[in-house]
């Protein structure tokens, strides 16, 4: 049995009075592709944001690649360097060019030289198919291009795990595909991925495991074959019928 690279045990998270995560326990193995779905406010984003400590969990235990997330800043930084994250709103650095966006973290956090960092950056820009945009500013790119730059920026840190927080939700329909294609390619290369998304077509193609969340709890974990055809819980069934009905 392979040891899990991400391990969540009894994780709880409160926002004031609101319980965003309720006793979440969950494992992700190396190379596994997990797609998390569920209605809005169900805690999907909060869960993956806890994995790189953008949110602090209140109780329970989160271990990433053998490092437990605690108050310890060194631990947090080493986890963040192993875990890439792509946001719904891209969050590129608007004052830097595409290339500068990509080399900033490798130079600062990994202490690479500029030439090394730029070489890696160009490789990844090539992979997301926009090497010709390297010297532009984010505002000059389309949403789909920006999101691909954001993916490349995360990859430049050579992470073991990639987290995607609704990466296509802020995009115009015709740009969703170009981003999903890049993500599918990434999955084929064996990247460990956790993707929060409503793109069920993408989930069917890519996922090893489907996770359904509701009201801060994990309701169902199943491989896509059984998840889409015969979900066990009524709540999952209802959600799927709503999301797949049209």
């Amino acid at each position: 049995m392979q040891k899990p690279i991400i391990k969540l045990r009894g994780v709880c998270k409160l926002f004031g009075q609101f319980q965003a995560l309720y006793d979440v326990s969950f494992d992700v193995k190396l190379g596994e592709r997990v797609v998390v779905c569920g209605p809005s406010g169900s805690g999907k984003s909060t869960m993956i944001r806890c994995i790189n400590r953008l949110e602090e969990h209140d109780s329970g235990e989160i271990t990433v690649d053998g490092i437990e997330l605690t108050e310890d800043m060194e631990n947090i930084l080493s986890v963040r360097r192993e875990v890439g994250m792509v946001f719904q709103q891209f969050n590129l650095f608007p004052h830097l060019t595409v290339l500068e966006n990509l080399v900033l973290a490798p130079m600062r956090a990994r202490k690479l030289s500029r030439t090394e960092a730029e070489k890696t950056a160009m490789e990844y820009l090539e992979r997301v198919r926009i090497p010709d945009q390297a010297s532009k500013y984010p505002a000059q790119l389309s949403g789909g291009q920006q999101q691909r730059v954001a993916i490349a920026r995360s990859l430049c840190m050579k992470p073991k795990i990639m987290l995607f927080d609704e990466p296509t939700s802020a995009l115009d329909p015709e740009m969703i595909k170009e981003v999903l294609d890049v993500m599918i390619e990434l999955a084929r290369d064996g990247m460990t991925m956790i993707v929060v998304t409503h793109e069920m077509g993408f989930a069917k193609t890519v996922a090893d495991t489907m996770v359904f969340m509701d009201h801060g709890r994990i309701v169902e974990v199943a491989p896509p074959s059984t998840f889409f055809t015969s979900p066990k819980s009524d709540r999952t069934q209802l959600f799927l019928s709503q999301i797949l009905s049209h």
Partner: peptide
Amino acid sequence: EAGKAVGLS
């Protein structure tokens, strides 16, 4: 968040 997520202090 983006800055922290790429591992910057």
